[in-house]
């Protein structure tokens, strides 16, 4: 299906640990879908499997109806930011982007365009190792935007961004969705999701808790998103402070 992310009965085991357990959900175009879950609930693992970086133990994860690794180059179809640290610290921002653009056969001018779009044009020749976390997040977003793809995945993209940056990212994601793209954003910041997402996929312990409009999910606890999230995932948190399990 065009621009649709389909995860079907997806399971990933590491030894005896089940990171993702028979997970099924669909992410549709034209809206921002938030991907919520406590730390260690399997969000990043799911995204990595979607992007062909990890092999699933069983089940399928498709984008545009295809497993990711059946593509030769991908930036024009799927853009992704997994971690701000997925860079080489000794390379400049421009060289990092130039290599990715070149590999995908994108026009060289695209590099300067995305650097401007994310606000890094002035530091393009600085080595990435000197960047703050927020600047590295912007660079990661620039990578995702490089091929102007119809499907975008972001893993905790607003970590480390300043308030202006958080607002910018929120408007960017909403704008991308309004253009008809599929935007899938993971986060554990409830307030941020409340302002950004139209639809939610919520997981805990690697299993699906909810796949519904944000308003419906928030209404479940009668209060806001945070209350609903705590109510539905509270007993399935893997890492909790002040407690020996």
């Amino acid at each position: 299906m065009v621009r649709v992310i389909e995860v079907n009965e997806l399971t990933k085991r590491y030894g005896h640990t089940v990171a993702v357990d028979a997970l099924t959900f669909t992410v549709r175009p034209g809206r921002v879908t938030g991907f919520l879950g406590p730390n260690g609930s399997g969000k990043s693992t799911t995204l990595r499997i979607l992007l062909g970086l990890c092999a699933a133990t069983s089940g399928t994860a498709l984008i545009d109806g295809r497993p990711f690794r059946t593509r030769g180059v991908a930036l024009r179809h799927v853009g992704a930011l997994l971690s701000a640290d997925d860079v080489h610290p000794s390379r400049t921002a421009r060289a990092h982007l130039a290599a990715l653009a070149r590999a995908n056969g994108l026009a060289r001018g695209r590099v300067d365009e995305v650097l401007r779009d994310v606000g890094l044009a002035e530091v393009a020749k600085r080595r990435v190792g000197t960047f703050s976390l927020g600047m590295k997040q912007r660079l990661g977003i620039a990578v995702a935007l490089l091929g102007d793809p119809p499907v975008l995945l972001f893993d905790e993209p607003v970590n480390g961004l300043d308030p202006e940056g958080v607002r910018w990212a929120r408007e960017l994601f909403r704008g991308l969705a309004a253009e008809g793209r599929t935007v899938f954003v993971s986060s554990h910041l409830m307030s941020e999701m409340e302002n950004t997402a139209d639809h939610l996929v919520v997981i805990a312990d690697g299993t699906l808790v909810a796949d519904e409009p944000l308003a419906d999910f928030a209404a479940r606890a009668g209060g806001g998103l945070e209350e609903a999230f705590m109510k539905l995932t509270g007993d399935r948190v893997r890492y909790r402070a002040g407690e020996v399990r």
Partner: peptide, 10 residues
Amino acid sequence: LIRTTFTAVP
């Protein structure tokens, strides 16, 4: 970086 590389070129 390997993840960025392989996400751009599967």
